[in-house]
Design a protein around this nucleic acid. Sequence first.
DNA 1: CGGCTATTTGATGGTAGTCAAGTACCGTGG
DNA 2: CCACGGTACTTGACTACCATCAAATAGCCG
Lengths: 237, 237
Amino acid sequence: MSKSIEMSTTEKHEILRGSYTLETASEDTIAELASLATAHLFKKGDLIFREDDPCRFFHVVKEGLVKNFKQSGSGRHFTASVGGPGDTLNTVVLFSGSPYFLSAQAMDNVVLLRVKRDDYVSITMEDQGYLLKQLYISEQVVKSCCDRLMDAVGERAEQRVYNMLHMLYAKFGSELRFTSEEIGELSGTTTETVIRIFAGLKSLNVIGSERRNIHILNGVELRNLCRGSSGHSPGRI
Amino acid sequence: MSKSIEMSTTEKHEILRGSYTLETASEDTIAELASLATAHLFKKGDLIFREDDPCRFFHVVKEGLVKNFKQSGSGRHFTASVGGPGDTLNTVVLFSGSPYFLSAQAMDNVVLLRVKRDDYVSITMEDQGYLLKQLYISEQVVKSCCDRLMDAVGERAEQRVYNMLHMLYAKFGSELRFTSEEIGELSGTTTETVIRIFAGLKSLNVIGSERRNIHILNGVELRNLCRGSSGHSPGRI
DNA sequence: CGGCTATTTGATGGTAGTCAAGTACCGTGG
DNA sequence: CCACGGTACTTGACTACCATCAAATAGCCG
């Protein structure tokens, strides 16, 4: 499935330092983690971990996009978040030691660093600055989940797609390499509905799109279309 | 709006000790908090705090039920969680100092203890056991939000109501003092739909209900009706 | 070129939201 | 004690949104 890659400790150090989660970690913490981290390559479509697997690693993405999703009994995929470079994959279950509640899959070829969970926990547990940051991140994740919950029960598909596009725009910029199906899984709707909604946005010149590629042409207008003021936070789960 | 109440420090101490959040806090932490806590009474319907208000207090419920909700642009209420005795109201935004993202309203007459946020943060920040527990709780909240998100986009109203009933049953027991409207706000559906679904459950002898009161008659069968294995965790936000 | 992935469009039907009207229940105050 | 107003529940009819199914088109790669 995955392939190990050679990488210098210096480079590992840089990658860890660049991750949002470890922003406020002490230099010692980072150095220790870097010395234990290993690099891996996942090909497009590979599963990085699976829902209900025990949580064995801490992961940081170096390259590529990772989809965090769940599938319902009926086989529907629902994507909870998309992780890019600098994002950690599953910070949220690391400390409890509970099994994953989402699966993670490479959307491109993905390079990531990982550290054994036990090592990770025992190293970071002593770093108070890190723990506080972690709490802060959890709070944001909860908030963003609640916002999406509101959307999911209260808003129409149209609105949910607008909000999702805006979130992706804020996180990844104006060139989004997503298929309509992927947008559907993120917005809790179907491919066909996404396409019909895109048709409307195109006629307003808010977006353009071809195969596997969406351009945000008018970010301001997109923002206006996103009611719900808060406008959605990145949602790193 | 709220009314102050006299209460002995000993009683305050007991209440704090009994809260889930502070379960693993050190004796010192609890004692310090108890000395600063004040007790308050809110009447049915009173708002305890409002979405977007700055977060000024840490709250623990002593008596009664509190609804944590949000209202969408279109005026729909969505209830994210219901807090009962021993629950804390807004742990999730305490550390970041961000404003509330949910409003809290007394569903009954409610008695709660509160401590100024700044005091609370500076006291608990030093208690590593507490921070770890807090992280653990956040993880559970995130998981429960994701589960509900799955439900909201993937399941039908019927299923969402089953899941919600089961969650309330697990948390509060077999006598639930909720109106159909409240169940609707919790499940992301309407009063009428809830009633129609209840009719089905009654004919299966799974529940009974009258005005403002739902009895779970067959918890086992209710559990079976809840697909999605995980069956939903309490969801203390 | 053929096979695959992705997009597009149309037609159809079901779920559940909305509107409306009517019933039962409760507490309160004359 | 009963009348009354408010709250909660109930049922029916209608309709919109969107999922689903189906089929056609278009770009990409070996």
